[in-house]
């Protein structure tokens, strides 16, 4: 007689175990979403109350008084991000270009390795470093110091993404340019970089979104400021520093404002991420 499809006891046990494990895996994915939903829910529900025009245009009120806004903090975050970008982006992009175009020697390998090392640096350490570099010589806290700390955090990401994106450009594009008699450096800028542009922009937006949400590196560099200031050599307010101060405080009014600031911060970062999605999507539809 032929061997029929006769399932054994062991077979049923294997099936049962398998089914159980697969169910648990699916459940994990669901469980992972719970904190995400909770955080969004609380931020929106708690932060919504104070999300009004006042928040954006009024200055913070003195301790104990209700109301006020975080105009200086919003502007402060933008200034700090801009400062950090002005310092960090050129360094990151140009280093990335160097590594991609000329990076086949020991020196380049060292730089690459060091960039990897830098990417593992915790944000608080970046703040400590900026303290030593800028705050100590200047003898006071400043937005510039904050910008430097943020730049330190941006550089590794931007370098790595730029290098990767340039490497992705096929050699044939480069050869086509050279064959037309265009000098190498022009080929790199006008052809290779233009092709890699969208990818590089993605890297930039990622880095900018990240530093917009940073707090630790600003704690003892830009410090914080309850007054209006856009001067780079003075302490600077930021949304993140405000969230920290207000969250720790015993005043319920301040606690609520902290939630609103968190909501505004998340909206800001979401806008950046959305820009990112748009930038990457159009890259694909063009092909």
């Amino acid at each position: 007689m032929k061997a029929a499809f006769a399932p054994s006891l062991r077979y049923y046990r294997r099936k049962l175990t398998g089914g159980l494990m697969l169910t648990l895996s699916a459940l994990s994915a669901v469980v992972a979403l719970i904190p995400l939903l909770l955080i969004f829910f609380y931020t929106i529900s708690q932060g919504f109350d104070y999300l009004n025009l006042d928040f954006f245009i009024k200055m913070p009120k003195p301790v104990g008084e209700m109301g006020g806004g975080m105009a200086n903090a919003i502007v402060g975050t933008l200034v700090l991000v801009a400062t950090g970008s002005v310092i960090g982006l050129p360094i990151g992009i140009l280093t990335g270009i160097y590594l991609a175009e000329f990076g086949h020697n020991k020196f380049a390998s060292t730089v690459r390795f060091m960039t990897e090392v830098l990417s593992g640096v915790p944000s608080i350490v970046a703040g400590v470093v900026a303290y030593g570099f800028v705050v100590i010589p200047m003898r006071h806290f400043s937005a510039l110091a904050g910008g430097v700390a943020l730049a330190v955090l941006m550089i590794p990401t931007v370098t790595r993404t730029t290098e990767e994106m340039i490497r992705l450009v096929p050699q044939s594009y480069r050869e086509a340019g050279l064959a037309l008699g265009i000098p190498q450096w022009k080929t790199t800028i006008q052809i290779v970089l233009r092709t890699a542009f969208r990818g590089i922009v993605t890297g930039i937006l990622l880095a900018v979104a990240r530093i917009a949400g940073e707090t630790a590196p600003l704690l003892f560099t830009a410090l914080g400021n309850r007054f209006w200031s856009t001067a780079l050599d003075q302490p600077m307010a930021s949304l993140t520093a405000f969230i920290y101060d207000y969250a720790k405080s015993p005043f319920e009014d301040w606690n609520k404002q902290a939630w609103t600031a968190a909501l505004v911060l998340i909206i800001l970062i979401s806008i950046l991420s959305l820009l990112l999605r748009v930038a990457t999507r159009s890259r694909y539809t063009q092909r």
Partner: peptide, 24 residues
């Protein structure tokens, strides 16, 4: 979409986690 949502968790600033941590 699920991968995207999970990666979204990584994009939330640590201060917001802290805020949620204290009050929730």
């Amino acid at each position: 979409p699920l991968s995207f949502l999970i990666e979204l968790l990584a994009g939330i600033p640590s201060i917001v986690y802290g805020l949620w941590g204290i009050f929730v």
